[in-house]
Design a protein around this nucleic acid. Structure first.
Lengths: 113, 113
DNA sequence: CCAATAGTCAAGTTTAAACTTAACTATGAT
DNA sequence: ATCATAGTTAAGTTTAAACTTGACTATTGG
């Protein structure tokens, strides 16, 4: 029987997702967008950060598919991309199932002795 | 109508979870434990890191309820704590639902015009 | 057309957090 | 009893990544 590939972590999709949400400011940005779309300017103001700094966070959130953006005139409109959260939910589900099936397999072995 | 509290992020539970998995080495440690429990030594070796360094990661993973540990003799046995993944799954589910309900509410407003 | 606004890019600085060292404790093996 | 192994603690170093600056482009409003 082939060894199950648990290191889903190797997937760049998952890497990008956890890296993006691993930072406090980016979590703030993401949650702020949950309330509705905003421009880079609108996101930057309450965080006390430069437009450049905010733009860098947005790129990382976009790469993680947590945020989508669209240039409208001279503004960039940012909104939630549901794909990231879906990926996260699937990831958590899959690994909880993997873990519990292994755990119960282990219990059987222990109980047999 | 009171403003819905979307900043679940303020919850230290969620903060700890994303902070913990935001780091590559800690993701490796976590996935490694998915295959079965290991000592601090066993975890440190393949990562080319000191025992001290590994111990620091383990504390962070424990705080996030992703890992549990138990001191057995002179060794510390580390294993997956399913609570962290459960929290993550609930988080992703909740926010996907929140987002999609807001999104469809927005669609209705737009369509009405 | 001109000034203000919104954002971007390349390059550098700053800071948080990852990591190490060295000294120590506790357990296990011979 | 003593030596090796496993881990811990406090303190310091290193590094990755967050952040800024200054110069630039593109859009918009007067």
């Amino acid at each position: 029987m082939a060894k199950l590939e648990t290191n889903i972590n190797a997937q760049p999709e998952i890497e990008a997702l956890f890296f993006a949400l691993g930072e406090k400011q980016r979590r703030h940005i993401f949650f702020s967008l949950m309330d509705g779309e905003k421009t880079v300017k609108q996101l930057a103001e309450p965080l006390n950060i430069t437009l450049t700094g905010l733009g860098q966070h947005i790129k990382i959130l976009e790469a993680a598919k947590l945020v989508r953006t669209e240039k409208v005139g001279r503004e960039r409109i940012c909104s939630v991309n549901p794909e990231g959260l879906a990926t996260m939910e699937n990831f958590a589900k899959l690994h909880r199932n993997l873990w519990s099936s292994r755990f119960s397999a282990l219990r059987k072995i222990v109980e047999a002795h």
